[in-house]
């Protein structure tokens, strides 16, 4: 009822502990607050939101696919406009208020990741992976610390941070390709290709680690990976721009 995942299927967990995000069935409908969301299509899914009068959602303005004429739009107050512009983050986040219907989609084959957030949760999301969030979720951004992380981390300068306080909320992301999640125990580490990182609990720390590679007598390259340290969840996507090669 809150995330649309099919209840009649087994968890798909790999031997190493990655759990495949449940593929939402076509036309799956789920509720948040007094509103509903319906997911349509499976190649590049569309999230169609039916907003009740007191509800609102926010989104990057270029993700709007279609809307009822009657749905009012306004801007979300975001701090650090200049920083966001320099960091390549969306300069403006738009709010759609109910009542009415509005639909969103991104521009690559992949999956919608529905993350209902309980009160008191903090989630960090790769920039430009966020599709839409309900108005009860606070939106901010955090700077990725460390020059090496920024220059070689492949995640840009900032990450989106979503926080719930006393109310629950719904956050939807778009992952390119397939999405997999793993829960790290305290102190447990995992290395992730930076382009594949999608989201993490804020309790998971992320640093860039360098792996020197020698190719022949004079050839010398470095490979950079994101080192994630638990506790908490880490989500990855299987299709990404390969960091460092641009491919």
């Amino acid at each position: 009822m809150t995330c649309g995942a099919p209840l009649d299927i087994k968890d798909k967990v790999s031997d190493s502990g990655w759990r495949e995000a449940p593929q939402l069935r076509d036309m799956t409908e789920f509720k948040f607050s007094n509103s509903t969301c319906q997911v349509e299509g499976q190649l590049v899914p569309v999230a169609e939101v039916t907003l009740s009068p007191q509800d609102a959602v926010y989104f990057e303005h270029h993700l709007l696919l279609w809307k009822d004429e009657s749905v009012p739009l306004s801007s979300l107050k975001t701090a650090g406009g200049m920083k966001r512009s320099i960091g390549g983050m969306p300069h403006i986040v738009t709010v759609a208020n109910g009542p009415g219907r509005i639909a969103f989609s991104r521009d690559a084959p992949g999956e919608l990741v529905v993350l209902p957030l309980h009160p008191g949760m903090e989630l960090d999301v790769r920039e430009h992976a966020f599709l839409v969030a309900s108005h009860s979720i606070q939106y901010s951004f955090i700077r990725i610390k460390g020059l090496a992380n920024m220059l070689h981390g492949g995640n840009g300068m900032f990450m989106d941070r979503f926080i719930t306080q006393q109310y629950p909320g719904l956050l939807m992301l778009h992952g390119n390709g397939n999405v997999l999640e793993r829960t790290l125990r305290p102190g447990e580490k995992i290395l992730v290709e930076p382009g594949g990182f999608l989201y993490k609990d804020s309790s998971v720390t992320m640093n860039t680690t360098q792996i020197p590679l020698k190719t022949g007598l004079l050839g010398h390259h470095n490979m950079y990976l994101a080192e994630m340290v638990g506790p908490g969840r880490v989500g990855i996507q299987s299709m990404y721009v390969h960091h460092g090669s641009g491919e």
Binding site: H61, L64, K67, E69, P72, L73, S74, S75, L76, K77, T78, G81, M82, S85, I92, T94, V95
Partner: peptide
């Protein structure tokens, strides 16, 4: 052309226009 209500968003560049370009 749809112009969302600006809820105090500080435009640091006066030559930017906050609008959605759609077709009807």
């Amino acid at each position: 052309l749809e112009y969302p209500r600006n809820m105090g968003f500080p435009f640091w560049h006066s030559r930017l226009d906050y609008r959605n370009i759609l077709v009807r």
